[in-house]
Design a protein around this nucleic acid. Structure first.
Length: 598
RNA sequence: GGUCCCGUAGCUCAACUGGAUAGAGCAUCUGCCUUCUAAGCAGACGGUUUUGGGUUCGAGUCCCAACGGGAUCACCA
């Protein structure tokens, strides 16, 4: 709710008091942007007020409008359309607000650290295969939400949980030992995560052959899957790893190291980072003591076979196992332990936000209930930032069918497309090779980031590799392009007239396209706060697009540099400044960089 | 079978959380570069918001039912 909306709410409350002798709550007054086909700037919905006025919507609006124009300095005209009271705000108001915003470096941002400390977890990769398109959505989403929360005024801790242990890692290790001939990333010139992934696939292939051979010998399939030599080896490796066998642990460290090198490269390209890394190998034993504590307090109970359970049926959920009968952990056990450890690692942590796909919604629902049963303070403030799957035209990505879209390859293709496009348009011939390389990444990566972030997280989305990603229309590059044009105007204006930070604007009458830009831009603080409370970057993306479209339309027939009248030139320059500042700040929250030219 | 999410133009998505005549982009068609970057702008075409009920001044939005799509309900990770 912007300041102006609040002002109007207050004014309407007073008007109702004086016109109808009715006392209303300011928040009960609905104020919205006036639709563009009507005169006015702000609209009060009067239907709900007819109860207080005891007259028709039109008469109520008429009475309020008359009172407001007479008694409020900011409101200079009104018009009644059915039950809607459209108010026109004095132009000088917009001018003064615009000036204030333009002189504020991070207009709309909350004071740093003014809101509680939150932790955002995202990425959670396995170390047996490279990152793919699904990780891109996850990472861009988690990173962007972190930035948005920070901008709103939270202090934010970005963390990653790395799934670095387990049978899947052992599979890669077995395959590499047996078929690898000592290959390393260096000896093959292969990115580390790709090399390890190659042996994970190899394991699966060879394993299938073994199973088939056993079945051919007359073994039934279930037994064959268990008895296959490769699988036995993998289980053996896992057991050895758990008993800290020196040789196996060394191999595990080596191969994980390769993967981390590969991930580091990809994260760097993606432009995401983390404040702290949690490794599953260090957390997988956590939680048992918490379960024991829960057993003592009666939060959990033990079955006859010795397994430990939580009964969540009163919460509409099921009974949930938290410890096996042999005393070993299940996933939930370590998630409990890790969650509690994080509160200890970061005192004052208000809540944890888990960026994880929607297939784990039930898991997190249960986890939060369990934490509550254990009496963890404020644990119900935690949130599962759930997002939908990225689907291909033929359905879900399946590694078996080779339809997984690799993150590195996709990023490279995006930059390549940006290069082809720019070259074709002949726009960057005078840039140095380094500048070009940077630009193509800014544009190409900007396109894929915007593409993935403009959709509401909860929705699953379509990605068509054939159709590729657009660079025109509602896209990242469209926004970048308009930003670049505005920047160009500002550069040239500065060359001709020197740097101008306007202190006063006497161009007090804006035309409709300018008012549209100003009003949209002044709405930005609400958008940011909404995006923060919803953890939804798509609201930011949509705002950027709306603002850019308004700017682009205006830019078409509003020359800046050629304008003779100095005050008008400065007014228009101010529009460009307002636009570029806001777009740069907002797009940065999406992790998208703005080029200076393109 | 139980629970949760989704269903809006041919396609991909919006809709300020219950407000006015449901908006953009892509695709198709028509105009606009001697003018600050045409990756642009203007216009046309395109809709029974899956269906049927209900709640009220007012429903794409809330409730119920059906249909369609997805997920989940492991001593898996």
């Amino acid at each position: 709710m912007s300041t102006l909306d609040q002002i109007i709410q207050g004014a309407v409350v007073i008007a109702c008091q004086n016109c109808f002798k009715a006392t209303l709550e300011p928040n009960s007054i609905q104020v919205q942007q006036t639709r563009k086909e009507f005169d006015g700037d702000k609209t009060v919905v009067v239907f709900p007020l007819t109860r207080a006025s005891k007259s028709s919507p039109e008469a109520t609006a008429e009475a309020l409008g008359t009172y407001l124009v007479a008694h409020h300095e900011l409101i200079c005209a009104f018009q009644v359309v059915k039950g809607f009271l459209n108010l026109t705000i004095v132009p000088s108001y917009w001018t003064s607000q615009l000036l204030e915003a333009v002189q504020t470096a991070k207009f709309g941002f909350g004071p740093v650290g003014s809101l509680p400390k939150v932790m955002v977890e995202y990425s959670s990769p396995n170390t047996n295969k490279p990152l793919h398109l699904g990780h891109l959505r996850n990472n861009f989403l988690g990173y962007s939400v972190s930035r948005i929360l920070e901008a709103a005024g939270h202090s934010v801790v970005k963390v990653q949980i790395i799934n670095d242990r387990g049978i899947h890692i052992c599979k890669s290790m077995v395959a590499w030992n047996r078929f690898g001939n000592g290959e390393t990333p260096e000896s093959t010139g292969t990115k580390g995560d790709k090399l390890v992934g190659k042996y994970y696939v190899r394991f699966d292939q060879e394993y299938k052959k073994e199973v088939q051979a056993l079945v051919a010998q007359g073994m039934d399939e279930e037994a064959a899957k268990n008895e296959a030599d490769l699988m036995k080896s993998a289980r053996d490796y896992l057991a050895k790893w758990e008993s800290n066998d020196a040789e196996i642990v060394a191999l595990w460290k080596t191969m994980n190291g390769w993967v981390y090198d590969g991930f580091a490269f990809t994260y760097n390209e993606m432009g995401v980072d983390f404040d702290k890394l949690y490794y599953e190998s260090e957390t997988y034993l956590l939680g048992k003591d918490q379960v024991m504590r829960g057993l003592e307090t009666g939060a959990f109970y033990k079955k006859e076979d010795g397994s430990v359970w939580a009964d969540l049926t009163s919460e509409g959920l099921d009974e949930k196992l938290v410890l096996r009968k042999d005393g070993t952990s299940v996933y939930m056990t370590q998630d409990i332990g890790t969650a509690i450890k994080r509160y200890e690692d970061y005192p004052g942590l208000d809540r944890q936000i888990y960026t994880v796909g929607n297939e784990q919604e039930y898991h997190f629902k249960v986890l939060f209930k369990l934490l509550k049963l254990l009496g963890v303070k404020d644990s119900d403030r935690n949130r599962h930032l759930s997002y939908g799957m990225v689907e291909l035209p033929e359905g879900k990505m399946k590694s078996r069918e080779g339809t997984v879209v690799d993150a590195d390859e996709l990023l490279a293709e995006m930059a390549e497309t940006a290069k082809e496009m720019a070259t074709e348009l002949g726009k960057v011939d005078d840039l140095s090779p380094n500048e070009k390389a940077t630009l193509f990444k800014q544009v190409g990566y900007g396109a894929i980031k915007y593409f993935l972030l403009k959709v509401s997280p909860q929705k699953s989305m379509m990605f068509d590799p054939q159709a590729s990603i657009d660079f025109i229309g509602n896209t990242g590059p469209f926004i970048q392009f308009n930003f670049v044009r505005a920047k160009s105007v500002l550069r040239k204006s500065e060359e001709a007239h020197g740097a101008t930070m306007p202190s006063d604007l006497d161009a007090s009458v804006w035309d409709p396209t300018e008012l549209r830009i100003i009003q949209l831009g002044l709405h930005w603080p609400n958008v940011l706060m909404q995006a923060a409370s919803d953890c939804d970057p798509s609201l930011i993306a949509n705002h950027c697009y709306e603002l850019t479209k308004a700017y682009s339309r205006w830019y078409q027939d509003h020359p800046v540099l050629q304008v003779e009248d100095a005050s008008m030139r400065i007014a228009r320059t101010t529009i460009c400044m307002f636009f570029t500042q806001q777009i740069e700040n907002a797009m940065e929250l999406l992790g998208i960089q703005m080029p200076e030219r393109m």
